[in-house]
Write a protein that binds this DNA or RNA. Structure first.
Lengths: 232, 232
DNA sequence: TCGAGCCCTTGACTTTGGTCAAGTTTGGGA
DNA sequence: TCCCAAACTTGACCAAAGTCAAGGGCTCGA
């Protein structure tokens, strides 16, 4: 990586706890790459060579098995991925591909492990980062096991409406097929489920959804911070 | 905690990286308790006061929402639970109760966080512990989203047969209703699913299951280390 | 601007899994 | 040992979700 890029990234919150020489030790052999959309970044089963950090764009994390495929999460700027594989020095459990043109920082797993061992504050920083993503997966597991498709969609809409400013509008940040995979269903079922939600004030026009009756939607969705609040 | 108990536990692998005074700092205010079966140890939503370590017995970790309930995992000796909540200083996302009489060590969350901040090796130890449990949940999420009930049961049997010595026998370590919840289904469906597996050489007699055709079972289950191998 | 291809929708149908209710079995305690 | 409650099984039914196929519409690139 070039010196100018190192300067640009050194202040990133992920590196909190590392002193400047350590950041350079980490970033110099790292790769800062720009990818177009639809590029496979990692493949499940491969050894964990790099810790990835999304700088901008959109990355879909997914898993396949026996002909089926499902999306685990869609990441945007600021998210790391496969930290657990890097720390454990074990193969990736998930694959990842860009959904949109994206900039990704790739840090050698070996260096990460070295720095974690020699710098307690950094170890703590990563442990907390990992604890956060752990909680995210647990919430997703609860979402899957304890809710139906309608409930999952309704909750996703409520959460996304909030993220997008609470103006009763949701603009889908990706294709509906991706949303379907994210919610753990098929595009056909998602389509029909949007139909069901019309009775609860959700009007779909292409990628824009208007929510005119948040109360009804909330009654159906029964949101819970223990599943839906990312900061909880 | 008493001095004799501290001596007994100080060598536990979880405390690797702590020196003796630090272990004492941690264990002296800890609680070592014996619980009968069916006791609720923690409740989701409560603040994370203690890191728990199962010393023996059996602890069911589960989550409830909107009248439904599902088992996330069943823990035995050596497992910690809710490490992520403790490190993040956030509420528990799951509840836990004993399935059998159990001995549980409860360590004050506050002390854990202090020790992690001051001791890098301990932070690393816990980060790796957390990475392992993280991968466990991801595998479980894939298991849920990518497989049917029959496939999940078949894979559970294959894995458990191996754990129990690979002699073509599985003795259920808990009630079938717990297994049903663990697999994400109802007792009725589990019962019928065992019926389906008779065509694949699985014979059920009470809590004992005989597997006479591992090849057929494996063909149905299509096991994958990326989902089923706990050490992967 | 036009057209090809992909996305999305819709209909019809199947499969899977959940639910309710009524037995039957089992296991632990008096 | 007997008995009761809980666990388990089975049947019948229902609801949810998946699949297949066809058609319409949007998008992006030539």
């Amino acid at each position: 990586m070039r010196e100018s890029e190192i300067v640009e990234l050194a202040g990133h919150p992920l590196f909190e706890g590392l002193d400047r020489p350590q950041v350079e030790t980490l970033l110099r052999p790292s790769l800062l790459q720009r990818f177009p959309a639809t590029v496979e970044l990692i493949r499940e089963g491969d050894p964990a060579d790099f810790l990835h950090l999304v700088l901008d764009g959109q990355v879909e994390v997914y898993a396949s098995h026996n002909g089926r495929e499902t999306t685990v999460s869609v990441l945007t700027a600021g998210s790391t991925f496969i930290l657990a594989a890097v720390l454990s020095d074990k193969p990736y459990l998930k694959s990842a591909r860009t959904l949109a043109p994206s900039r990704v920082l790739m840090m050698p797993a070996e260096r990460i492990r070295e720095l974690v061992a020699e710098n307690g504050r950094f170890a703590l920083r990563l442990a907390i980062e990992l604890a956060g993503t752990y909680r995210g997966v647990v919430k997703e597991l609860k979402n899957q096991k304890l809710r139906s498709v309608v409930e999952r969609l309704a909750n996703w809409l409520i959460r996304t409406e909030l993220d997008q400013g609470g103006r009763g509008l949701v603009d889908l940040p990706f294709e509906k097929r991706v949303l379907a995979a994210r919610l753990g269903t098929s595009p056909e079922v998602l389509s029909r489920t949007f139909g069901t939600l019309e009775h609860y004030g959700a009007r779909v026009q292409g990628r824009r959804i208007t929510l005119s009756d948040m109360t009804a939607l909330r009654t159906l969705a029964k949101p819970s911070p223990l599943i839906d609040d990312p900061d909880y």
